[in-house]
Design a protein around this nucleic acid. Structure first.
Lengths: 208, 208
DNA sequence: ATGGCTATTATACGCTTGAATAATAGGGAC
DNA sequence: GTCCCTATTATTCAAGCGTATAATAGCCAT
């Protein structure tokens, strides 16, 4: 008796809540501090429920990682407009919130640190990385073609590797020490750098 | 009786062994798997000894992080020769072993993921990052001056942020998926990218 | 050689962990 | 309404955690 009352949630909703709670805990307390009990507390349920939705805590964490990768990727992949606009937006999206914030990099780093330990996470990571880079590579191919500098796959690959590195590196810098930079400074540096790398302007221009 | 025989090590040596064992365990099993017992096993001692050298496991981990930062930084900071050579070496060192390998990034990520959790680690990180970037910034200032393009602190800062991001990003890419790149490919891409960013050649030339 | 200091081992303790189980409450079908 | 299914709570368990304490072995000074 005196048992706590509760809301009986639809499966998808509850799973989503649990995954979000998992990510909250990992970002706030680290992988070590993200215990089943802490996660359940955050999700507003009791610990036993986790095992009703996931076969193990590890599986729940892996699914949470998929969610992180997806959220970091999807925003950047959905840019629209002409090639120059898409390229600019791609850069800006990745270097401003919500993609660039301390929660994101905490999660990213927590999972990266497990890539050597857990082959499941390693595979999730590799898939996400290649997908991300391929989006960028296609974007660069379009942009170069539209600006009278069509490039073969090999050249695009090298550009994609370099610009991906640049954007990722600036993303890390911004996430970890955003206060060391002025508002919009990283985006501005990234834009100028990409222009220098490609040897082409990507600024918005009235050339219609 | 029947107590295990042991070697009575000098303090510095034993501390160093314990810290190395800590790093080995973190890189192989993650922060979660780096337990006092596992670390002691790796170091060839029993668990109790840890507390003889460190006031807590957390303190030992923090010192281990300092060691990581130092090893990632010192090699890059000790480049010698004329400015162009130093710049080239700086890039090459950071993108080849032993700085660029999967163990390094596992350790780096494990600690980064704790920056939000543990203020001590956060401070260690920030100090290391700024030191690293300042080395690069000084290096760029020298290089630009030596090539007839002297630049003020603000311009050097922007270049340092961009190139630091580029090198860090390529470092991450290489550490996590070295097999996706050809031998020396990342270094080659980095060299070409830095030349494009600065608008100056950094290749070895016979211009004496 | 031997006495004394301490680095090291060995063992135990209290706590937290992920997981398993049993009891119960929510809510749709009828 | 009442029955039935199952999502959820409550409780328990063994294992592993970091730490504390006491016994002991290595080794230097004498």
């Amino acid at each position: 008796m005196n048992r706590r009352s509760f809301y009986r949630a639809p499966e998808g909703e509850r799973r989503h809540e649990l995954i979000e709670a998992t990510l909250d805990c990992i970002s706030e307390f680290g992988l070590k501090g993200a215990t089943v009990r802490q996660i359940a507390l955050r999700a507003g349920v009791t610990a036993g429920l986790v095992r009703h939705y996931f076969v193990s805590k590890d599986q729940m964490v892996a699914e949470a990682y998929r969610a992180v990768i997806a959220s970091l990727t999807e925003k950047a992949a959905n840019v629209e407009g002409d090639p120059a606009t898409r390229l600019r937006d791609f850069i800006a999206i990745n270097l401003t919130e919500p993609v660039a914030d301390s929660r994101s990099i905490s999660l990213w780093a927590a999972f990266i640190s497990q890539v050597r330990v857990d082959p499941v996470l390693a595979e999730i990571h590799r898939d996400g990385y290649l997908a991300f880079r391929n989006v960028l590579q296609a974007l660069l191919a379009d942009f170069l073609a539209a600006n009278g500098r069509p490039a073969g796959p090999e050249e695009c690959r090298r550009y994609a590797i370099a610009i991906n590195g640049l954007v990722d590196g600036l993303w890390v810098e911004g996430c970890l020490a955003g206060d060391l930079f002025r508002e919009g400074e990283l985006v501005s540096i990234a834009m100028a750098s990409v222009e220098a790398l490609l040897g082409l302007p990507i600024k918005k221009t009235e050339n219609k």
